[in-house]
Amino acid sequence: MDENGAVRGANRPVFFCFRKCYIISMLEIKDIEKLAKLARIELTNEEKEKLLKEVDPILGYVAQLKEVVSVVGEEKVAGELRNIMREDENPTKTGKNTKDIVADMPDSQNDYLKVKKIL
């Protein structure tokens, strides 16, 4: 990946059919490492290798979308979006669910969530 978060190789040629994909590798181990860091997941070396092997063909498969869109054109607008608002009425009484929610916390003290210090 470059400093903008872009991953190298995504424009390399890809060939498709339905059942099998012949692709030129798009990712390297260090890309997996960067993605895992962004997603805040620790991975073992073995996991990284496996992910690379599994993710690559999937990316190859989905890359056919580029070709579809180049045929139908980009002018298609994706989705109809609208906001749905509601009044914030009848708020829950303070403390009503505190006990249950605190019970779900991995660590707590006096009804506060306990985490490691940040600074």
Binding site: A6, A10, L35, L38, V55, L59, V62, L65, V68, A78
Partner: peptide
């Protein structure tokens, strides 16, 4: 990991936007 990739800067358009168009 896949989702982080397709939403990453520079690839959002190549994957996520294209997928929504299709």
């Amino acid at each position: 990991i896949l989702g982080t990739y397709v939403l990453s800067s520079g690839y959002y358009d190549a994957y996520y936007n294209k997928a929504n168009i299709v």
